[in-house]
Computed example of a mutant assay.
Amino acid sequence: MIVSSTDLTQRVNASVQTRHSGILELNPKSIIINPPANDIYPIEVTSIEAGYTTILLSIDPAIADVYDAFIRVTSLHSIELYHFSEVIGWIYFVAWSVSFYPQIYENWKRKSVVGLNFDFLALNIIGFTMYSIFNCGLFWIPSIQDEYFEKNPTGMIPVLTQDIFFGLHAMFATVVTITQCFFYERANQRVSWTARGIILVFALFLLISTIVAAATDKLTWLDILYFCSYVKLAITLIKYIPQAYMNYKRKSTVGWSIGNIFLDFTGGALSMMQMMVNAHNYNDWQSIFGDPTKFGLGLFSVVFDIFFIFQHYVLYRQSRKDVAADPEKPEKTGKDEIL
């Protein structure tokens, strides 16, 4: 609806339109408002197709700023699919949140971190730190939110409370795991020079970007947050490689919790399922095929989880039997280098 004001001193033609055609039908699309006016003009909105769009207002003559006069509208195929998607979302949120603890328990039970790759831990803590910086900055800092809305006037902040909790909790759980490495048996394991070099590159990239943002107007603080998210994405692509390679060199998965993998697989698979359900329900396949980053990263993680399961139950299952038969037998540690 459009609400007119008694301050109106001249005749105005108010028009509404949708940013994307074929999703909604508006009736009427144009209203003539004559002064003096203090009335409400209803507009009927009918859904034609599922999807996302924005209803925009324009007036002629332009006697007022209507830049912020818009309504975001979501049209869906099925409310049942909407609730199903919500359930999927909470299940994979819980699965991913709990997935850190089987490894922590495994380390505590064995009083050893032999078999857990330190490169994986180093990359993981950097990744989740970057993820949390992005989420917290965009969720809590008003100046950065202003920058976001300046670039996306009709957009919504793409960070939820669950994202904040998951990122900070993931940092906490990873720090707990890293702390265990200082107190439990670890043999000759260490963070490899390859991983240190990768982390140094990321650190220099963010440091230089931050200096540029602080000293010039070439970059905004929103850009810095996006750079943090890009580092997180890059780490997600590479962080499993050291552990998989270490398992291969040791010919063993002893010390690497399979419970963590099953929960991560559950979370990743359900995350992709939710994306598919939402893409159908909102007729938004572009979110997957037009920008495949999120879906591709989820798929990449699931593929690695399947590979770890294959290592654990097929390739190196004999090593687990050997350890079970002779718990006092020293474990092969191998080197934890990526290359």
Rank of each mutant, 00 (worst) to 15 (best):
I40C: 06
L116N: 01
P28A: 07
N152K: 05
N283M: 09
M130G: 03
H312L: 06
T333S: 09
I198Q: 01
N27Y: 10
S112Y: 06
E150K: 14
I59D: 05
R196Y: 14
L237M: 15
S5L: 06
I126V: 15
E86Y: 14
W256P: 00
R186C: 06
I288H: 03
L225C: 02
Y82G: 04
S85K: 03
F70L: 02
N188P: 00
S132T: 15
V303P: 00
T6F: 10
H83P: 00
I261L: 01
S30R: 12
V302M: 05
E86V: 15
Y82K: 14
L76H: 13
L315A: 11
V98W: 11
I224C: 02
D305F: 03
L225R: 03
M1T: 13
T236K: 02
D217E: 14
I208Y: 12
G51R: 08
V113K: 02
G259L: 08
A69C: 12
I224Q: 02
F100Q: 07
E185L: 07
C136L: 14
I88E: 00
C181G: 12
T210Y: 14
V175S: 07
A187I: 06
I258F: 09
Y148L: 03
K29S: 11
S99D: 05
L121R: 03
I144S: 02
F227A: 13
K111W: 06
Y248I: 15
I2L: 14
L8S: 04
G290P: 00
K294E: 08
G298C: 08
K335D: 13
Y82T: 13
S143C: 03
P330R: 08
F183T: 10
F120K: 05
I309H: 01
F262M: 05
A195V: 15
F202K: 08
I88P: 00
I164G: 00
D284M: 08
V175T: 10
N117V: 09
V3C: 01
A213W: 10
N281G: 07
S271H: 12
S112T: 07
I104M: 04
S301A: 15
V212G: 02
R317F: 13
A50P: 06
P35S: 09
V87K: 03
E150M: 12
S21T: 15
V277I: 14
T266K: 00
K335V: 13
P330S: 05
D119Y: 06
I306A: 11
N107Q: 03
N247M: 09
P35M: 10
F118V: 05
G51N: 05
I55R: 01
I144G: 01
R110C: 00
S85Y: 04
V175E: 00
S112A: 03
W140A: 07
Q145V: 08
T194R: 00
N278Y: 11
K232A: 13
L8C: 05
T216V: 08
Q286K: 09
N152T: 11
S257P: 00
R317I: 10
W90A: 07
F84R: 00
F134I: 07
I48V: 12
E44R: 13
